[in-house]
Write a protein that binds this DNA or RNA. Structure first.
Lengths: 309, 309
DNA sequence: TTGCTTTACGTCCAGCGTAAACATG
DNA sequence: CATGTTTACGCTGGACGTAAAGCAA
């Protein structure tokens, strides 16, 4: 049984007339007759009653036609669904990110992606180390800080998706409140509140030649906790400029002088991942984050394993 | 797109290898390759990734395969459903009957039919005049008494499906209680309870030469009411022998001497009705009611309009 | 007779098989 | 080089068209 037989049977049922049905199919009457006969022979039952007043489906024919319609519908859906999947309009994307990414680039990117790709199942997960989950195959996109390390890292491409610099946050009751900026020297006199990796790595050069002040800093898991501890007058919080998005009335933000650049927020994906959903997501990222497109294309072109793209 | 393309794509996805998939399909490798290529060209998307480690569906391919499976399932169901419908295993049968038919032939027939044809939607309806509803096209089978009249009656075939004779029913407090039989002469002395058509037609010869005793009889719509009125000592109920199936403790049944045969219970169907469900039902009736088969065959053979059977 | 379906038969395309060429690790 | 896929090409089955033959009203 071929799809042709189904189409012919449906046309015949619709027109109730071999001649008109054949015309609607763009073929002559006799072939239609032989094809219907062949179908009936294969099914083993008469599907149509040929009467003087027209051609009508038998009980078997009625039952057959219902399924025939279903089968042809599935076939047209197969075509449509394949196209949608190829364009990344359906499917699944697992995105892992560090919490602070939710403040700046992610809301715009994710919001736009959800609007333009409403039928993609988007899994969002806040993680301490998204790139590890990406390497483990639990994610499709990781947004974190620094470059991924570990086995398989050579199969990842990583692009910066947003630069940022250090600012300070204090309670409105703190002497710094109301000041647009503070100097690094002043900071070194204060008890500090920073994130764990900031304390251990990228903030240390800031306090050269004596980075030991960081060893006594309070440690917070995310920037909301930094702001909260600062609000408690537990110390001066240090974090990225995008922390200003936090709208608490009991805190005050100061620029840090001189401006100190923080490690870029970076997005990683597997180069071996040829998922159209990922491609669609990257395309949205390109539109939202300046300069990402060219860097991404460059990296992908250079990468030896980027065959399937 | 033809069903062949779906079968080939599914085989390829299953075996992840052109050669083995082709072998499983009973064709050589190159035709499979060309057919898959043709399918991909028609869909407009690559459906399979050909890698060194095997052939794997792309995202578009995955989406396509889901629908392809669905379409082929529908096609095999089309075949199965057509066969089942042709054998009368599915479909609908509307049966109308007079209440008293529920006592004798219908329980056996309907019970057997439901067991052997559980997927047929059987509509059962108690009616005063089932044959009228059959003529009106509201029924497929009518079980009633006497022969159908009216426009279109020549397109019906009617066979007797059970003979019966008259018995009397009285209260256990009635003088007749305990007697195996009563004579017709004794009945004429008593107040009677009969059905409407019995009073007006087929019971009148019983009381010749003076059928006027029936004019004062109480009229009941069904045999349960006859028995109930008899139980109230409202009179002597007259009805068919199958009335003995009624299991009330406050009534007593007597044969009527001499035995008086009642009009046969008859089953009517439209000769123009070629529904397989009806054929299956008639086949059950044949098995349950002796002699019906031969009579039915005879009537159908003689009928000029019985072409489609 | 008329209108419609089926049968008969010739034609041509398309799907298949064989053989060779081409990619890829 | 070995394995597997694609391209090339001849062949054949079957789907189509035309013409003629049933068939029912």
């Amino acid at each position: 049984m071929e799809a042709r037989h189904l189409r012919y049977a449906l046309a015949l049922a619709e027109h109730q007339h071999f001649g008109r049905a054949a015309a609607s199919l763009g073929i002559a009457q006799p072939p239609l007759s032989t094809q219907i006969a062949a179908l009936e022979r294969e099914i083993g039952e008469r599907l149509f009653d040929r009467t003087a007043r027209g051609v009508f489906p038998t009980a078997a024919g009625e039952a057959f036609l219902v399924r025939a319609r279903g089968a042809l519908t599935e076939m047209s859906r197969a075509r449509v669904d394949a196209g949608r999947a190829a364009r990344g309009e359906t499917g699944r994307l697992r995105l892992g990110f560090i919490g602070s990414a939710l403040l700046d680039p992610l809301p715009g990117v994710i919001g736009r992606f959800r609007r333009t790709h409403p039928d993609v199942r988007l899994t969002l997960q806040e993680l301490e180390c998204p790139s590890a989950a990406l390497l483990a195959g639990e994610l499709d996109v990781a947004v974190g800080r620094g470059s991924p390390r570990g086995a398989g890292a050579e199969d990842l491409v990583t692009v910066p998706i947003g630069a940022d610099h250090l600012i300070a946050v204090v309670s409105t009751a703190h002497p710094f409140a109301g000041r647009p900026s503070v100097g690094i020297g002043q900071l070194a006199q204060e008890p500090l509140v920073v994130s764990a990796d900031a304390a251990s790595t990228y903030l240390r050069p800031l306090f050269n030649p004596d980075p030991t002040v960081l060893d006594t800093a309070a440690i917070a898991r995310d920037i909301h906790t930094i702001a909260g501890l600062a609000a408690c007058c537990a110390g001066v919080g240090l974090g990225p400029n995008r922390m200003r998005m936090i709208a608490r009335k009991d805190i005050w933000f100061c620029d840090v002088e001189p401006r100190f650049r923080l490690p870029d927020l970076r997005m990683s994906v597997r180069v071996t991942d040829s998922s159209p959903v990922l491609a669609a997501f990257l395309s949205v990222v390109r539109q939202n984050c300046a300069d990402v497109g060219a860097r991404l294309d460059d990296l992908l072109a250079r990468h030896p394993a980027a065959a399937g793209r």
